[in-house]
């Protein structure tokens, strides 16, 4: 899922100070699972804003809405009426959701209510960890299903740096060294020789450091013209 962390309500308030009508929009996908932008969090943010509005003397008019998925235009329809009179929309969706809303309602200010962190999963209740940096060219088959791009603090592709000690990463003692994990797993699989293969420089053009990526697959596109029958 896409991991996100809630922004503070005070940082949101700083942006909506003089406004009256707000829409707080949640999403039922990833941000619901990582408990930062689902129905529950929408209601929480809305209530805090309401209290702050009363305190300042003129209350906000707040509409709450949580759609099935903010990153799909068709699911944004329930926002249409609400956005007509809104001064701003606070989206608790990930950065993608925020942008889809902003694209659909270009005259309304859209404010991200969460900080989008990356691709990850739940490791225990209340703890989520990043696992995928979405580099666009997955090498997990060669690294025993452990991603060095994400989990090695230096994104090394050819084994550990000199800073790993007792299996810990030099960049933070609470983090395991990804390359030591890969080594142990390769050993278990009898594939240690894979560590001797020199991996050439990675093609980062496929990653987020290149131009904006687009996935185009004609085979799943709708048929726009009727094919002549043979």
């Amino acid at each position: 899922m896409i991991l996100a962390r809630p922004k503070t309500v005070s940082s949101i308030l700083a942006l909506v100070g003089g406004m009256k009508s707000l829409v707080v929009a949640g999403c039922q996908e990833c941000v619901t699972v990582c408990q930062s932008g689902g129905r529950k969090e929408v209601s929480c943010v809305a209530q805090l804003l309401e209290i702050a509005g009363k305190k300042r003397g003129f209350p906000f008019e707040i509409a709450q809405v949580t759609v099935f998925r903010q990153c799909d235009n068709e699911y944004l329809v329930p926002l249409d009426v609400l956005m007509e009179k809104a001064d701003a929309c606070i989206s608790l969706g990930c950065g993608v959701g925020v942008q889809f809303i902003a694209e659909r309602y270009p005259t309304v200010m859209v404010i991200p209510g969460v900080d989008t962190v990356g691709g990850g999963g739940t490791v225990m209740s209340g703890v989520w960890e990043e696992r995928c940096a979405m580099c666009g060219e997955c090498i997990l088959a060669e690294t025993t299903g452990i991603c060095p791009v994400t989990r090695c603090a230096k994104g090394l592709l050819n084994g550990p740096c000199g800073g790993s000690v007792d299996g810990r990463c030099e960049a933070g003692t609470d983090l395991p060294c990804a390359w030591e994990m890969i080594y142990h797993r390769l050993k278990k699989q009898g594939r240690l020789d894979s560590l001797t293969r020199i991996r050439p420089p990675k093609n980062w053009a496929h990653s987020g450091s290149g131009v904006m990526r687009k996935v185009i697959r004609e085979e799943v596109m709708p048929c726009l013209s009727v094919l002549p029958l043979k």
């Binding site: 800073g163 790993s164 007792d166 390359w179 080594y183 560590l195």
Partner: peptide, 17 residues
């Protein structure tokens, strides 16, 4: 190379690389 970081086997593999 760091002879003291982690398993010797891994450090030698890394040196070899």
């Amino acid at each position: 190379e760091n002879p003291f970081a982690g398993p010797v086997e891994l450090r030698v593999l890394r040196l070899g690389k």
